[in-house]
């Protein structure tokens, strides 16, 4: 984490959708955000706040109506062509005609790794997500949580510098989700990848992140950025600390009362410009202002 240049830089991202060529829906309005190397940033907000759209814009899967995305100092399209992104969606999107191993090798084939390297690399990634015994299985033979772990292994296989995760555990039950959270933290700590994580679960966002970006809908904008200064490594005990509950409460307040935060001034204009520090949420005066990265 010596490199302090932002991995992702969003400048005035605006996204409007036209329906029937007439009515314009503003999905995102003037989003500014910086994400530094090795950060774990969650985007959280109610349905329709554009958090998934924002993630897809960062990943160059859709183009914004206005604004600029810079990733590793390049435009997003260049970054995508340079294979800077690993994507994990809410559904695992595994290819059912391939084995688990074959699914993880997919990006490596496209990147033209030679066979030996592909096999070794996929094996290594599957060990990382603790599915080493399931390489020859087909996706339908795995549980939902295991399938999602294959998807994570696949996303990490070619060592992308940034991992984009779109509600990856949204379809899983609560217990599996908590286990997957631990898993993802372990992987993040082992690989040092920058993660942008979309979720609508407050506990998940707080537990995982170094920063939580709170968004509000119509138009989608950033209303608050909250630094999560929980100690690392985090584990099940973390979920029972007082600090954890305070932060969960803080994120919930920020979600439920966007803009009504008064004294701390966490309106969209101030918060969205901040990268080093999130503005102080109103409910507790004890929230960290300094970035607690890593």
């Amino acid at each position: 984490m010596t490199d302090n240049a932002p991995v992702v830089r969003l400048d005035g991202i605006t996204m409007t959708f036209s329906r029937g060529g007439q009515a314009l829906t503003t999905a995102l309005e003037k989003i500014d955000l910086e994400i530094r190397r090795g950060e774990f940033v969650s985007l959280i907000g109610p349905s329709g706040c554009g958090k998934s759209t924002l993630l897809r814009i960062i990943g160059d899967l859709i183009a914004p109506t206005a604004g600029e995305v810079t990733v590793n100092g390049k435009p997003a399209t260049r970054a995508r062509l340079d294979r800077d992104y690993g994507m994990v969606f809410q559904a695992p999107v595994l290819f059912d005609w391939r084995t688990v191993q074959g699914n993880v090798e997919l990006p490596l084939e496209i990147l033209r790794f030679d066979r030996a390297k592909r096999t070794a690399r996929a094996r290594e990634m599957l060990e990382l997500v603790e599915l080493g015994d399931f390489v020859r299985h087909h996706p339908y033979q795995l549980s939902g949580g295991m399938q999602q772990r294959v998807a994570i292994a696949r996303a990490l296989a070619f060592e992308p510098s940034i991992l984009l995760m779109d509600e990856p555990f949204g379809a899983l039950d609560e217990m599996t989700r908590e286990r997957m959270n631990l898993e993802v933290l372990r992987i993040w700590e082992q690989t040092g990848t920058t993660v942008v994580f979309v979720t609508h679960s407050i506990p998940e966002a707080v537990f995982l992140s170094s920063r939580v970006v709170v968004m509000s809908p119509r138009p989608g904008r950033i209303t608050n950025i909250i630094d999560i200064d929980l100690q690392r490594p985090r584990n099940d005990a973390t979920r029972e600390t007082e600090r954890y509950f305070e932060l969960v409460t803080a994120v919930r307040e920020a979600l439920h009362h966007p803009g009504s935060t008064g004294s701390s001034g966490s309106t969209s204009s101030t918060s969205s410009s901040g990268s080093a520090a999130g503005p102080r949420p109103p409910s507790t005066g004890r929230l960290a202002v300094e970035g607690a990265v890593g």
């Binding site: 995508r80 294979r83 290819f95 084939e109």
Partner: peptide, 25 residues
């Protein structure tokens, strides 16, 4: 369609999309 997004995130050339996604599917 999400598999196509996945392939695009790998900057997959059209040929690979055909042989590795469209045809097997």
């Amino acid at each position: 369609p999400r598999a196509l997004e996945l392939m695009r995130s790998y900057a997959s050339p059209r040929r690979a999309i055909y042989w590795k996604l469209r045809l097997p599917a």
